[in-house]
Design a protein around this nucleic acid. Structure first.
Lengths: 239, 239
DNA sequence: CGGTTGTTTGATAGGCCTCAAAGTCAGTGG
DNA sequence: CCACTGACTTTGAGGCCTATCAAACAACCG
C-alpha cells in the first residue's frame, strides 16, 4: 500500500526491516478524495498527516482576489503534509488535483516512532527538508526563469520524481493536470501556458495532451531548464 | 551570545533551563565574515551548521548566465543552514550580505542533543519547517504579487522577524541591503526596485534609505501586501 | 445532445526589463 | 582639504514578455 512511499525513502536512505514495519504501523486509515476536494484546510489544528497513495495533490496559497499559487505538487508516495507534525497547523491548503487516495497517519504514531527510532526521525526530517529544497528551486523558477524555462523545469522535476516510484514509461508519464493547474504552479496565466506548451511542442521538446507528458528530447529539455537534479538529493546515504 | 537565537525559539515553544544549557553547549566556535563573503558553499559535504549572531545573510541560487535569486533572508538569531544536518550538503549558497558573525555548530553535537532531548529535536525540526513556510510565502509573492505588493510583503516580514529579536525601534529597523539585493529577493531588476521604492515612499507607506527601513503607515503597508503573519507561526506552544 | 469544462486563437495593453548615462555619496590618499 | 575612485542610486527611452479580455473550438458526460 505504501510501497511507493518506501521506495522514495529508500532512494535517499537505508530503511531496515524493523523500521519498515514501524512505518507500516503508522497508517491508521485510508481515505479517498475527489478531484478538487480540499484534503487539508489551512489554519486548522491538525492531529494527523497524510501519505498520498495515488493521484496528484498540491499545496496552494491564495490572495483575496483569487490569484492563486501552487507551491508544490505531490505524487504517489509523497507525504503531503508531514510538516504539520511540528507546525500543528498549515499556512496553505492541500488539495486534490485528480482523484486521490491517501493514508492517514496520526501524529501520536509519528511521535512514537520518532521516540523509538532516532534514525527514522532524521529520515522524516530529511523528507521535510527536501520539500523545502523543492520550494527553493521553484522560487528560482518563479523569480528568474522565463515561461518556457519554468515549464521545462517542472516537467523535468516530475520526470525524476515520478521515475523514482516507477511511474515513468520510457520518456512518458501520466499527469492529469489542466493547463490552468500548470499556470498556478508556474506563476503564469493559462493562456500563456497554452502558448508556451505549443512552443515546446513545435520545438520538438515535449508534448502534453490527454493527461500525459511525452518528452521527445530530454537532453535539450534539461538544457533549456538548466535542470540540475541535485536539489532532489538522490544520493542514498545515512541521514 | 546566542540570546537572540533563544528568543526566537521561545517565541514558538518552551525551552527549559536544561535544554537551553544543551543548546549553548552546541556552539564550537565563532566566525566572522565580511560582506559578500560566501559562508556555505553549495554541493559540498558539510559537518557543521551555523547560527547567525549578527548581520544579514541569505540563501541564494543562480543560473549560468548570472540571473540570481535569493530564496530567504536571515537575521540575528537564525540558523542559516540547520537543514544541512539531514541534507548533508546544500542546493544553494549561504552568503553574507553585510558583515556577519556566526556560531559554528558541529552536526555531531546536534546528533547528540537530538538523542538526549526528543523535544529539542522537534523544536529544530519545527525551525526548518518554518523556513519552508517562508519559502512558500515567497513563492506566492514571486508568482502572484506585483512589484509593490511583493516589496511591501518583504518589509512586513522583516518587521515581524526583527521585532521578535528586539531589533525594531518603533516602526523602523536597520537593513543594510542594496537595492540590488532587494531585487534578487523579489525577482525584479534593481531599476524597477528603485522605482517601486519611490512609489511606496510617495504613497507615504515607508522609506528605505541609508540602510534603514522606516514604516510610515503599517496598516496600509500590510493591507497592500495582504500580509498575514500566521505563516510565521508565532504561537508559543509545545511542538 | 445540451451543458460544462478545458483548450485554442486573436487583439490589445501594460508591467517590468534592458540599455545607457547621470547623479550621489562615502572612503582613500596625496 | 580636495581630487579621485568605486559602489550604489536615480532617471530616461524604448521594447518585450506576459497579462487581459473575448470568443471560438473541442472534448467529455450524464
Amino acid at each position: 500500500m505504501i510501497e511507493r512511499h518506501l521506495m522514495k525513502l529508500r532512494a535517499r536512505d537505508e530503511v531496515d526491516a524493523e523500521e519498515e514495519e514501524a512505518i507500516r504501523g503508522t497508517v491508521a486509515e485510508v481515505r479517498e478524495y475527489r478531484s478538487r476536494e480540499v484534503i487539508v484546510r489551512s489554519h486548522r489544528a491538525l492531529e494527523t498527516s497524510n501519505i498520498l497513495l495515488s493521484g496528484v495533490a498540491c499545496r496552494q496559497k491564495d490572495l483575496s482576489d483569487g490569484r492563486r499559487q501552487i507551491t508544490e505538487l505531490h505524487v504517489d508516495g509523497d507525504y503531503t503534509d508531514l510538516h504539520s507534525f511540528t507546525l500543528k497547523s498549515l499556512d496553505h491548503e492541500v488539495m486534490a488535483l485528480t482523484d486521490c487516495t491517501l493514508a492517514v497517519i496520526p501524529h501520536e504514531r509519528l511521535q512514537e516512532i520518532t521516540r523509538r527510532f532516532p534514525h527514522l526521525t532524521r529520515v522524516y526530517w530529511f523528507a521535510t527538508n527536501l520539500d523545502a529544497a523543492i520550494h527553493r528551486e521553484w522560487a528560482l523558477s518563479l523569480g528568474r526563469r522565463n515561461a518556457a524555462e519554468r515549464m521545462a523545469h517542472l516537467f523535468c522535476e516530475l520526470h525524476v520524481r515520478l521515475g523514482l516510484v516507477g511511474l515513468v514509461d520510457g520518456e512518458s508519464y501520466a499527469l492529469a493536470l489542466t493547463q490552468n493547474d500548470l499556470a498556478e504552479c508556474l506563476g503564469l496565466t493559462s493562456v500563456h501556458v497554452n502558448r508556451t506548451l505549443m512552443q515546446l511542442r513545435e520545438d520538438g521538446l515535449l508534448e502534453f495532451r490527454g493527461g500525459r507528458v511525452t518528452i521527445h528530447d530530454l537532453p535539450r529539455l534539461r538544457a533549456l531548464a538548466e535542470f540540475d537534479e541535485s536539489y532532489l538529493y538522490l544520493e542514498r546515504r545515512r541521514r
